[in-house]
Computed example of a mutant assay.
Amino acid sequence: MSATTTNVKEAIINRRSIRKVKKNDNITKERLNEVLKTALHAPTSFNMQSGRVVVVMDDQHERFWDIVKETLRSRVPEESFAATVERLQGFRDGVGTILFFENQETIEQMQEKAPSYKEQFPYWSHQGSAML
């Protein structure tokens, strides 16, 4: 195995969910741009490239989590809201937030171009987003 394969294997085996993140000086805008440029090469069925990535950092990152908190205020029972705020603060304390979503217009265009595969494009889009 190559060093890269071993590192990926170790990363998969040793991965953990981290809900309280901290600012890390090693995560820079330049490093994120490098990673995102690489991610853009992730393959997709029919090369549809329906996945999208939005990165928010600095003040925009903090504002994003403030919006999430205020949105959840009306949806989470009052007795559970303090725990929700604590969890959200754990995310807000990070360097930035990366949001992944799928462009539905792209999927619909592909369905029109290749109608015999119409039912498969939403599934393929999810798979492409996972690789992204």
Rank of each mutant, 00 (worst) to 15 (best):
S129Y: 00
R63Y: 04
M1V: 06
V35W: 07
I12H: 07
G96T: 11
T44K: 10
D58A: 07
V35C: 07
S116R: 09
V54R: 04
L88V: 15
V95G: 05
E34L: 14
Y123G: 13
F101L: 07
Q89T: 13
F46E: 01
T71G: 02
Q60A: 10
D66K: 12
A83V: 04
G51I: 01
F81P: 02
E79M: 06
M48S: 07
P122Y: 07
I107V: 14
F121Y: 12
A114W: 05
I18W: 12
E70I: 09
E62F: 04
E102I: 14
Q49P: 10
K29D: 09
P77F: 04
K69N: 02
R63F: 05
W65H: 00
I67H: 02
W124N: 05
N103A: 14
R15V: 06
V55R: 00
W65Q: 01
D66H: 10
L99W: 08
L32K: 00
K9L: 12
K118R: 13
F64R: 08
L132C: 08
K37L: 14
A42D: 01
L72P: 02
N7S: 15
V8H: 09
I107H: 07
V54S: 11
I98C: 03
T28E: 06
S17P: 03
T106D: 09
E78K: 07
E34W: 10
K22C: 06
E119W: 14
V68S: 00
N26R: 15
K22W: 10
R52Q: 13
V21G: 10
E79W: 01
Q120K: 13
T97P: 03
I107T: 12
I12L: 12
S2T: 13
T6F: 07
A42T: 08
L132G: 02
E112S: 12
I13G: 06
V55S: 01
H61D: 04
S80K: 14
P115K: 04
D66Y: 08
T84W: 02
F100I: 08
W124P: 08
V55E: 01
K23F: 12
I67W: 01
T84C: 04
V68H: 00
Q111W: 12
E34N: 12
N33H: 08
E105D: 14
I18Q: 14
V35Q: 04
E105N: 15
E30N: 02
D59Y: 06
Q60G: 03
E86S: 13
F81M: 11
Q120H: 13
E86M: 11
N47Y: 08
M110V: 01
L132S: 08
I13D: 06
V53N: 00
A82Y: 05
G96L: 13
A130S: 14
P115A: 03
T6C: 06
G90H: 02
D59P: 13
G51N: 05
M131G: 06
W124D: 02
R19S: 05
T84D: 03
T106N: 09
K118C: 11
Q49D: 05
S50N: 13
F81C: 04
E62G: 03
I18L: 13
S129F: 03
S2V: 02
V56K: 00
